[in-house]
Structure formats: structure tokens, C-alpha cells
């Protein structure tokens, strides 16, 4: 069962993602901060990360750089409320950029693409 790490400071979002993605047949680990996520990554293997950009403490972009230094192949989907970071998404070398929506159809489609 593919394992996904959901990083978001909003508890509700983490809960929603967890429920929805579990139903899709994934194992979900959540983290409220980048620091917490880094700790999890030290001990656990994950297949994909959904990453919020604005986070307390270390922000999403910094986290992305750190993760990509070690695990180049690990797919990271940027999930954020900010549209305007989109243009930088190529530079950050994340795999996808998704604007958060109450409709999780797109998120699920993209995840499926990476976890075939």
C-alpha cells in the first residue's frame, strides 16, 4: 500500500486529506510542520508527499529543497492556497502544483499519476 505524507498546518485539512486518501487506498501519515515531517522522513519511508507552502517555522519551499537533496525521485505535490507561486514551481523542482480546492478530484488524479 503506497504511503503518503501529508504536510499541512491546518488540522482540518490534514483530517480531510487523510480520510479521503485512505479511501483511495493509501496509507497516510500527517505532519503539521516541516520540522515534524523531516523527523518522520528520517524513520519512515514514504512514496509521495503533499506539501503546503506556508508553514510555521520552516516553510514548504525550504523543506522541498532539503527533501530533494536527499531523495531526488520522491514525488512532492505542492498543495497551496497561493496561486501566484505557481510560476516558480519549475524552479522548485516539485512534481506538481495544485491550488487547494474543496474538490479533491484533481489532487487524487495527480497522486494516481505518480503512484501507478
Amino acid at each position: 500500500m503506497p504511503r503518503i505524507l501529508v504536510i499541512d498546518d491546518e488540522e482540518n485539512i490534514r483530517l480531510l486529506y487523510e480520510i479521503e486518501l485512505k479511501e483511495e487506498g493509501y496509507e497516510i501519515i500527517t505532519a503539521a510542520t516541516a520540522e515534524e515531517a523531516l523527523k518522520i522522513l528520517e524513520t519512515s519511508e514514504v512514496d509521495l508527499i503533499t506539501l503546503d507552502i506556508r508553514l510555521p517555522g520552516m516553510n514548504g519551499i525550504e523543506f522541498l529543497r532539503k527533501v530533494k537533496e536527499k531523495k531526488r525521485e520522491l514525488p512532492v505535490l505542492m498543495c497551496t492556497a497561493y496561486d501566484d507561486y505557481k510560476q516558480d514551481f519549475g524552479v522548485w523542482a516539485s512534481e506538481a502544483y495544485i491550488v487547494k480546492s474543496s474538490d479533491l478530484a484533481e489532487l487524487k488524479t495527480r497522486i494516481k499519476e505518480f503512484l501507478k
Partner: peptide, 13 residues
């Protein structure tokens, strides 16, 4: 956006 979108995602979701 962040503040509004996130609650919207939760409500809608």
C-alpha cells in the same frame, strides 16, 4: 487566500 481558502477546503471537503 490562505486563510480563506483553507477553511473553504475544509467546509467544502
Amino acid at each position: 487566500a490562505h486563510e480563506i481558502r483553507n477553511p473553504l477546503v475544509s467546509i467544502g471537503g
